[in-house]
Simulated assay, not measured.
Amino acid sequence: MINHLKEVWPNLVISGGFAAVCGGLSYLLKVEEGKPFKFSEMLLHTLISGVCGLVSYIALHHLAGFDPDVCGAFSGIAGWMGTRLLRVIELRVRKKIEGV
C-alpha cells in the first residue's frame, strides 16, 4: 500500500489542492453575492472542499477506473459544490430520521 501511495501522491495533492481552490472560489462568490466575509469560515469551506475533492478522486479512480485527469476535473467540481452537497445530504438524512 505504501508503494502505491508513493506513485499516486502527486495526483492526490494536485486534485485536493484544485478542489480546495475551487471551494475557496465558491465561498468568495457567496461573499460577492452579499454574504459577510469571515476568514475562519473561508478556511473551513476550503478545507472541506479539499477533502471532498480527495474523496471524489479516490472514488472515481479506484471504484470506477477513470483516468487520473478526469478524476482531477471532477475533484474540482466536488470542491466547488462540496459544502453545499454535504449540507443537502445532511438535511435529507435529518428529515428521514425525524420522519421515522
Score class of each variant (00 low, 15 high):
E90H: 03
L25S: 00
I48H: 06
L44G: 04
A20V: 02
S26D: 02
S26M: 00
S56L: 04
G16Y: 05
H45W: 05
G99N: 10
G79Q: 03
H61N: 12
V8M: 13
L44N: 01
L43M: 13
E33V: 00
Y27V: 01
L47C: 10
F37E: 09
V51Q: 00
S26C: 00
L29D: 07
W80K: 05
T46E: 09
V70S: 01
F18E: 09
F74W: 14
L86V: 00
E41G: 02
K95M: 04
Y57P: 01
I2L: 13
A19W: 02
V70R: 08
L43I: 13
F39T: 13
L63M: 15
E32M: 07
T46Q: 04
R92M: 13
A78S: 11
E33I: 04
R87W: 12
A64I: 14
M1Q: 10
R92T: 00
C22G: 00
R94D: 15
L28I: 11
A59D: 05
V55S: 06
K96Q: 07
G82E: 00
A19R: 03
D69G: 05
R87Y: 14
N11H: 14
G17F: 14
I14Y: 02
V100W: 15
K96V: 05
H61K: 13
G99F: 03
G17Q: 04
G16H: 08
G16I: 09
L86H: 08
R84L: 15
V100R: 14
I89C: 00
P10L: 03
I48W: 12
M81N: 08
E98R: 14
L54S: 02
G72M: 11
E33M: 14
G76Y: 06
L29T: 10
A73F: 05
M42H: 09
I2M: 12
E41V: 05
V31C: 00
E98M: 15
W80I: 06
R92Q: 13
S56E: 12
I89R: 04
A78D: 08
T46N: 03
L85D: 11
L25V: 01
G53R: 03
E41N: 11
V70D: 02
S26H: 09
R92H: 10
E90F: 09
N11F: 12
G79I: 02
Y27D: 07
K35V: 07
H4R: 13
E98N: 15
A59M: 10
A73D: 02
K35R: 15
L85C: 05
I14E: 02
I2P: 09
L44Q: 08
M81L: 11
V88R: 11
V13C: 07
I48L: 09
N11A: 07
A78Q: 07
H45C: 04
G16W: 01
G24L: 02
R84Q: 12
E90W: 06
D67R: 07
L29C: 08
M1A: 13
V55T: 15
I48C: 08
V88I: 12
S56H: 11
G34K: 03
V8Y: 13
I97D: 06
V100P: 12
A64D: 00
